[in-house]
Amino acid sequence: MNTTSRRIHDASGLPAGTVASREFVAVDDSGEFSYHRSQQDLVAAFEYVGEAACIIDRSGSAFRLVLDANRHLTLGPALGPVEFHWLRHAWLDAQNAHPEGHRLRRFYPVTRDEVVSGLFETLALEGGTAPVEGAWSLDIEGFASFPSNIQEIDRRLARGDRLERARVKDPFGHVYRPARHRKHRYLPAAAGSILYIEIPASGSLGSVPHALP
């Protein structure tokens, strides 16, 4: 069941603390991840209690949906810290299963805090709502520009021959090299989506990200 388009709500793409409402990330019963800017948006995105397999807030606390006295969906009480190993593997599985939907590929997370913060940041950025002007940067052979979101970067990199010369920095300071992902090797290079593979901020290739196209 692919419900990504129904579930991804307006996302600010801004660092923690700049969004007034409480934010959540949910994992549905098919393993899909989604970002929600408020509890109201979260509850509205689901139709029955078990549809959300896991819900977390920015602190890493886990929640489930429950029914209130009027049998309406609502957010239940905190259940304690989310299980780190399950969350990390579920996120990596979702990225591998839907590379065109999860295109910001950061280094392999080694702590629960890294997994949680990375989820909120990347899902918000992939949601496509423009952050503050200039929060993204795109450098192609020393020429810098400041796109408003990842979709604008895609348009500027539409020609595949420019990818290896480009570097992208997101609003949180992570640096990426764009790479074309093709669903089938016989398709032309331009037919695939662009993944953004994290590299060290210096721009060197000394470290290997957790997922490559």
Results as ranks from 00 to 15, higher is better:
Ala97Met: 06
Ser145Trp: 01
Glu100Ser: 12
Val115Asp: 00
Arg112Asp: 03
Phe107Gln: 05
Val116Trp: 00
Arg155Glu: 07
Glu126Tyr: 08
Arg105Leu: 15
Val132Ala: 14
Gly134Val: 08
Asp154Leu: 03
Glu141Ile: 13
Arg105His: 13
Leu104Ile: 09
Ala94Tyr: 06
Phe143Ala: 13
Pro147Gln: 06
His89Glu: 14
Gln95Lys: 14
Thr111Gly: 05
Asp93Gly: 13
Ile150Pro: 00
Ala135Glu: 06
Gly118Cys: 10
Glu141Gln: 13
Glu83Thr: 14
Pro109Arg: 04
Val82Cys: 03
Val132Gly: 15
Phe143Ile: 14
Pro99Met: 05
His98Gln: 12
Asn96Pro: 01
Glu152Thr: 15
Asp154Ile: 05
Pro147Asp: 09
Leu87His: 02
Glu126Gly: 09
Gly118Leu: 05
Trp136Asp: 00
Val82His: 00
Leu92Gly: 12
Gly134Tyr: 06
Ala135Asn: 04
Ser145Phe: 04
Tyr108His: 13
Ala97Tyr: 02
Pro109Asp: 04
Leu87Thr: 05
Phe146Arg: 12
His89Gly: 11
Leu125Lys: 01
Asp93Arg: 15
Pro147Gly: 09
Leu92Thr: 14
Thr129Asp: 06
Val132His: 08
Glu126Ile: 13
Val110Thr: 15
Gly101His: 09
Leu104Lys: 02
Glu141Phe: 11
Gly101Pro: 00
Ala135Lys: 01
His102Glu: 01
Tyr108Glu: 12
Arg88Thr: 07
His89Met: 11
Pro99Phe: 05
Ala94Thr: 12
Ala94Arg: 06
Leu138Ile: 10
Arg106Thr: 15
Ile153His: 01
Leu104Glu: 01
Ile153Met: 03
Leu104Asn: 01
Ser148Gly: 15
Leu138Gln: 03
Arg88Trp: 02
Glu141Asp: 14
Leu119Tyr: 10
Arg103Tyr: 13
Gly118Phe: 08
Phe143Tyr: 08
Ala124Ser: 15
Ala90Cys: 11
Phe107Arg: 07
Gln151Asp: 10
Ile153Asp: 00
Ala135Met: 07
Arg103Ile: 09
Ile140Ser: 02
Phe143His: 12
Ala130Leu: 09
Gly134Ile: 07
His98Lys: 11
Pro147Trp: 04
Glu133Leu: 11
Gly118Ala: 12
Gly142Ile: 07
Glu100Thr: 14
Ala124Val: 08
Leu104Arg: 04
Glu100Val: 10
His98Asp: 07
Pro131Phe: 04
Trp136Thr: 05
Asp139Trp: 02
Gln151Ser: 15
Leu87Met: 14
Glu114Arg: 09
Glu152Trp: 05
